[in-house]
Design a protein around this nucleic acid. Sequence first.
DNA 1: TAATTACCTATTGACATGGTAGGTAATGCG
DNA 2: CGCATTACCTACCATGTCAATAGGTAATTA
Lengths: 142, 142
Amino acid sequence: MMISSRGRYALRVMIDLAEHQNDGFIPMKDVVGRQDVSQKYVEHIMVLLSKNGLVEGVHGKGGGYRLNRPPEAYRVGEILRLTEGTLAPVACLECGAKPCQRAAACRTLPMWSRLDHMIGEYLDSITIADLMKQDGGDGYVI
Amino acid sequence: MMISSRGRYALRVMIDLAEHQNDGFIPMKDVVGRQDVSQKYVEHIMVLLSKNGLVEGVHGKGGGYRLNRPPEAYRVGEILRLTEGTLAPVACLECGAKPCQRAAACRTLPMWSRLDHMIGEYLDSITIADLMKQDGGDGYVI
DNA sequence: TAATTACCTATTGACATGGTAGGTAATGCG
DNA sequence: CGCATTACCTACCATGTCAATAGGTAATTA
């Protein structure tokens, strides 16, 4: 298993914010009520999204969070890389991994590398706007 | 990160056994010496592979492990599903997961489902025989 | 001033991972 | 037979992450 609750919650919150983007700043209390996730846990995630400029947070009454861009300008890959730390399928491909001695002779590295590219390209091809449609954007629901 | 050392070690051992498939039963001591992994840890993995019929183990002097099939008859996906337990990118797609209440309305499920298919199909398209070639079988090294 | 809301720091319990320890059982060889 | 060799078994351990909770502080509005 690759994507943890942290990343999945982040996506769901972002979609929820996108669906209410015309309502000004949305308090987390509302989002959490709709999405049925732990408020205290989501708070941590929001700090991450906020510090990295994906959303803007405003304190106090009438405050909450708001998207900083239109939904079609958020790639799923970007959000997941931020919340998960990496999307690499194996440790040796993680950003900042110590170089592997065996890399040159490794029989499996090309496979991992190609898998990494596939996953990254796929998740970068989808935006929050795509996820607002139930079918994920291509009309085909599995 | 999706594939742990357990799965990566399993693949490396299987490749090593494939490369020495004409030498009869190969003791783990030899494989571990070549692959530079923990013998005690690999022992656990071998029991799993053996119990599931991927390899055959023979006790005593002159014993060791041997592949039960030709290398081209092992799909990487099969080995990884066995050692990792699942290849699903999210918990709700794991085999035996409790059904999610939100599935019907879930905005992200189609995406996860498609990603799951992509990963599975890719890893099932590669065999141990492919991995014995340095380039992974398509002549293109990233 | 009070209510509301984001944000901060610390802690927790559960679990998986990677590995070690110390055996037992089977097999071949001298 | 006895010994070395090898797979296999059970148990344990250290570390880290995950998901969540607790208990605040700071900013903002009414």
